[in-house]
Design a protein around this nucleic acid. Sequence first.
DNA 1: GCCTTTTATTTCGAGGCTCGAAAAAAATAG
DNA 2: CTATTTTTTTCGAGCCTCGAAATAAAAGGC
Lengths: 414, 414
Amino acid sequence: MAGAIARSDDVRRQNRKLVLTALRRRGALSRTDLTTMTGLSASTVSAIAAALVSEGVLLESRDGDVGAARRGRPQVTLTPNPDIAKVGVVNLSLNSITVALVDYAGGIIAEQTTELQTWPATGGELVAEIGAMLRRQLQSSAGSGGKLMDISMSVQGVTDAAGEKMLWAPIIRERNIAFGPALTDAFDVPVSLANDCTMLAEALRWTDPGHYGGDFAAILLSYGIGMGLYLKGQPFSGSHSSAAEFGHMAHIPYGALCRCGRRGCIEAYAGDYAIWRNAMGMPDTAAPAFSIDATVFAELAERAREAAGVEREAFHTAGRAIGFGLNNLFSLIDPVPIAFVGPGAKVFDLIEPEIRNAISGTAGWDGAQELNIRCYPEEHPLILQGCAMTSLLRLDAEVFSGGETRGLSQTSAA
Amino acid sequence: MAGAIARSDDVRRQNRKLVLTALRRRGALSRTDLTTMTGLSASTVSAIAAALVSEGVLLESRDGDVGAARRGRPQVTLTPNPDIAKVGVVNLSLNSITVALVDYAGGIIAEQTTELQTWPATGGELVAEIGAMLRRQLQSSAGSGGKLMDISMSVQGVTDAAGEKMLWAPIIRERNIAFGPALTDAFDVPVSLANDCTMLAEALRWTDPGHYGGDFAAILLSYGIGMGLYLKGQPFSGSHSSAAEFGHMAHIPYGALCRCGRRGCIEAYAGDYAIWRNAMGMPDTAAPAFSIDATVFAELAERAREAAGVEREAFHTAGRAIGFGLNNLFSLIDPVPIAFVGPGAKVFDLIEPEIRNAISGTAGWDGAQELNIRCYPEEHPLILQGCAMTSLLRLDAEVFSGGETRGLSQTSAA
DNA sequence: GCCTTTTATTTCGAGGCTCGAAAAAAATAG
DNA sequence: CTATTTTTTTCGAGCCTCGAAATAAAAGGC
């Protein structure tokens, strides 16, 4: 019975959201630009803009472009008011926590990374550290700008579908850590917790909407193998968890030992520890190494590039696993553009041939599809950007589209 | 950047849709029932109902329940007017075409099945036959009821995402048959073409919304292995094709020969031809048999049940392939309820142990998930019902609600 | 310097929609 | 025949958006 009843309010909300979304994408637009971009009438844009300006969500800047002195009344440029709100951004990766503060216009106010051992840490310790970092940033920027209004946190692990708990992560011993509620308690703002690959995908979609506008997958080849999936422009998540566990699809039944404890997962062939294990000539049932040093991994790649041998073979094995995984993925959701992100993207040349080999013959039923892959070696900036966009878009869509300043009842918050 | 702008119209459309949907689910409701079910105010329901009655979409029946002579003004029951429209239903399976005519209230006006050789048939011949069958049914029911307003057709094969063309099917040599446009030309109504498994899923969702309301998969174990997938209450399809080709996920890299020409697909182990091939002791690279007789297949099952041997082993192999496929599926979309439909559901006892075996250890990250499978041996009634519901719901949502719904639905694209 | 042209934005009334309150309708109970 | 109960409709208020007209603010032309 999926059906929300529609009121006059909803119309206004939807159209305000339209205006705010257009403005966020372009940064600065006049009312006239907004009418053409949104399709709304000039009068409606005028009314909405007036309300948003009076609420302090948008700023008017009268000067406009200096060079373009055209005839007629000059346009007034509207921009998001950076000082109306701040959002917090948190990323938890292997042995590091990054926290940043971003203003409503998307400007970075503060950013800091702390190194610590994540595996033995408890959820409480991590929350405390994150809280301390964020509080420090808030204090040193206390004079300027608005209140903290939203937090987005990403973790290298599996989260629940509600965006509250981290169910499991390869980087921490403890399970079921409720980061969301804990941070909400501490800062009294909405918190959304997500898998880092989802944030990766969000960032890519934001930076290149033309290419990543509809269906696509961002695959993080790093300490583990994760995936962020967008379908029809919406982030995909399962009914219980963040799902999209590309790395733990079965490649070879009863095959190599994976860090998750099962056998034959793609990650058990294509994860950094798996490549290392194979390159060392160890049996594929050997216990996965906890962490592979970046320089060690780079040396492996160098030797693989120089001459044929176990190293090259290990990368080929990885490519084959990924290729078959993509094959399976494409069987289910059709071929989509793929973004490889992280350290694995730096060795794409070594794995690409076997990926293509494994995937040839899939090609979709209309035959016209071809493999579409792009590589992005640096994952951390993208993850942070994805978190920031998640929070900002949430503010746009759910807070500033809702007309808080009016005194009407706010009972219908579902 | 598909920003849907919202107008006052869209509110009305959304709420009319709400009323029609509630009515279709329950068959007959008073205005009072509708206010409680939809959450709309009594005045709004009154206005919408009055409009729908005056348009002839709904019928008022004053009598009501005979036994329940309660105090107060009696409720007037509203029902869909069967005579406001008819929809056509077409199913194309191996060597058979079924065509039916359904009225707006869901009553079956006519139904007919024609046997013919599908493999050598051309698209043109099939369209001609379907057209003739449907035209005959329309003529013999010409006196009563409304015009034909929509057609839903399902095929045992891959369709495009737009619901117009059949890209490929194992039952027909010809490819890229544009059934949709052809039938639209012939009958001048919208036609939606879909994979039969999608229709299966639609029917299941309709008959048991409690169990199949959110995410679930209907898997057809028959001449091939197909899947219809619902995610968050919406039918899933890929960007180009109907996708969800469960049967053609890779089970064993470079493994058994599949009818699709590739190797190692799940279907190449679990399709009826694969089970037969294994039970006969043939090499798994032997060319797939075109069709397996139902009685032959039943005998195989009987022998497998009686004693251990190649037959039983063949079913176990099938179960293992399906189990690993589900495992992969669940890695991507979380564990969901599964419905097995068709002949394979009759031998579920033979394949179940290996399915459970292959899947154990998946269990989701919160550990609480368990395998949830139901079986439905007869696929054809479900497929027809799914087609009928597809057309009727389309009429409800897009025609009798007053045109295309634009904004306001929960899906926001950017 | 003043009037015209051009472009941007606001104002105003019309029309649509939902909602709450009150009225009307249609039955039973006494 | 009147009171009570329940269902449904009517009516006015409040929000929206939209189109047309009015207003605002610049450059151009003479």
